[in-house]
Amino acid sequence: MPSMMHPIWLTAVLACAAEQAQALRCVAPDPLRTFSEIAAAPEDYYVLYGELTFDEAELPEGLRAMGAGLPAPIAAQFRGKGLTQAGFTSDYISPVTLQIDCMANYCGTAQSGIDALYFVRADPTPVTMVASPCREWIFPEPTQAVLDQLTACMQGGC
């Protein structure tokens, strides 16, 4: 009997390792690709540019244990602009929730007090900004060229 359990155990370990390795594969973050994805999504989204402030001491530190739940949401404040047909012209000042998302034992992160681009599901207030390990929802310090390209996309020119 032990000889049969060993291959099963080895297969289970290899399957978990393969699953973890696959879960950590991310495509290079690209705000234009994210814009295209949310434009095709059935849900509504906001594209926001501005400053998120929160207590960085609440961010999870290091690697988390496998199978651990998501870190607790972090209360934050956003001050910036929302994307419209005319560009980032709509004031958006609101309390928000920052949710750190994790895959395997790696978690996303965010920075307080810097200008960044946020793709946020248009849920009831407060909206939730998600910091994922693949960095597809938050783009720190985008260039003016990126902001201009997103405006062009909003106008149908992507």
Rank of each mutant, 00 (worst) to 15 (best):
S36E: 13
A57H: 11
Y46T: 01
P42H: 14
E43I: 02
P31R: 07
G50M: 02
E61W: 06
G50W: 00
R64W: 02
A21Y: 13
G80V: 00
A39I: 03
P42G: 13
C107T: 12
D30E: 09
R25I: 15
I93E: 02
A23K: 14
R33V: 01
Y106Q: 11
A28W: 14
S112H: 11
E43Y: 05
C107N: 14
F54S: 05
S94N: 14
Y45H: 05
T109V: 10
A110I: 13
I38Q: 07
A110F: 06
P71W: 03
A110R: 11
G82S: 12
G87D: 14
P60N: 08
L52G: 01
I38D: 13
T84F: 00
I100R: 07
P95T: 00
G113L: 10
S90Y: 11
G87P: 06
T84W: 01
S90Q: 15
C26S: 15
F35P: 03
D55C: 09
I38A: 03
G80M: 00
K81S: 12
Q22L: 15
E61R: 08
L52M: 05
Q111R: 15
D44Y: 07
Y46L: 04
I74K: 02
L48Y: 05
A86K: 01
Q99E: 11
Y49A: 00
D44L: 11
C107G: 10
I93W: 02
I93Y: 00
E58W: 04
V47M: 04
Q85N: 11
E37I: 09
D55W: 08
T97S: 12
G80S: 08
G67D: 09
A75D: 04
F35G: 00
P71M: 05
S90K: 13
G50E: 00
F78R: 05
I114P: 12
L59Y: 10
D44A: 11
P71I: 07
L48E: 04
T89K: 07
L32G: 04
L32Y: 10
S112C: 04
C107I: 09
Q111S: 15
A75K: 07
A40S: 12
T34W: 09
E58Y: 03
A21D: 07
I100E: 12
Q22G: 08
Y49R: 03
L24F: 01
F35D: 12
R64S: 11
A57P: 06
S112G: 08
Y92R: 10
V27Y: 01
M66E: 10
I38N: 13
C26N: 15
F35T: 06
C102R: 09
A76L: 10
V96A: 09
P60S: 03
P95I: 01
Y92S: 06
E58C: 08
E51A: 07
G108P: 13
G50T: 00
M103C: 06
G113S: 09
L48F: 00
T34P: 09
I93R: 04
G82F: 02
I114G: 09
L24G: 12
A65F: 07
N105K: 12
A28E: 15
L63H: 08
L24T: 04
R64N: 05
L24V: 06
S112E: 08
P60Y: 02
P42Y: 13
G67T: 10
I74Y: 03
C26I: 14
A28T: 15
E43P: 06
K81L: 04
D101M: 12
A41V: 02
Q77N: 08
V47K: 01
L83C: 02
T53W: 05
A72I: 00
Q85M: 07
